[in-house]
Amino acid sequence: MIRHLVLFKLNEGVTKDDPRALAGAKAFEELGALIPELREWECGWNITDRDIAHDFAINSLVEDREALASYLGHPAHQAAAGQWRAFATWVIADLEV
């Protein structure tokens, strides 16, 4: 199993009520039902307000590297991630669990 974690940081001047951020969050929220390789899917806005905190997170689980590659290449994932490129940066970690 692989735990896929992503932390997003909104760009300077972008807030979570920005229409782009709201649309990006909605696109990610819908992925759990659209991509069969996802065994678990959680995402949402961070509730803490600290300088070192990121703004949005994804926590997902897939079966193996092949499933991860399928998820990452899925058109719905590509479209959702593409929205975020315009207003945020992110870091990822993929853990074998």
Rank of each mutant, 00 (worst) to 15 (best):
A88Q: 05
E30S: 10
G82H: 01
V91R: 05
I47V: 15
A80R: 00
C43I: 08
L31D: 02
L68I: 03
D49F: 13
G32C: 03
W41M: 05
L68T: 08
R65K: 14
G32H: 06
A53V: 03
S70I: 07
A76G: 03
I92L: 12
C43P: 08
A93I: 10
A69P: 04
W45Y: 07
E37Y: 10
Q78C: 13
E40S: 14
I47P: 02
I92Y: 10
G32T: 06
G44H: 09
G44Y: 09
I52C: 14
F28K: 00
P75I: 01
T89C: 06
A93M: 09
L72Q: 15
S60M: 12
A57E: 04
Q83F: 04
F28Q: 00
H54F: 10
A57H: 07
N46I: 05
P75E: 04
N59Q: 10
F56Q: 02
Q78W: 01
A79P: 06
G73P: 01
L68P: 07
Q83A: 11
A76P: 02
D55M: 02
D51V: 15
A81Y: 00
G73M: 02
E29Y: 10
A27H: 00
A79E: 11
F56A: 01
A53S: 15
L61R: 09
R50W: 09
I92F: 11
L31N: 07
E29W: 05
I52F: 15
G82P: 00
E63N: 11
D94A: 02
V91A: 14
V97T: 12
A88S: 15
E96T: 13
A86W: 03
F56C: 00
A93S: 11
E30R: 05
H77Y: 02
Q83I: 15
W41G: 05
A33I: 05
A53W: 06
W45N: 03
A86V: 07
T89F: 03
E40Y: 09
E63G: 10
C43E: 08
A81Q: 01
D94Y: 01
H77F: 04
H74R: 05
L61C: 08
V62S: 07
E42N: 15
R50S: 11
A67C: 04
V97G: 08
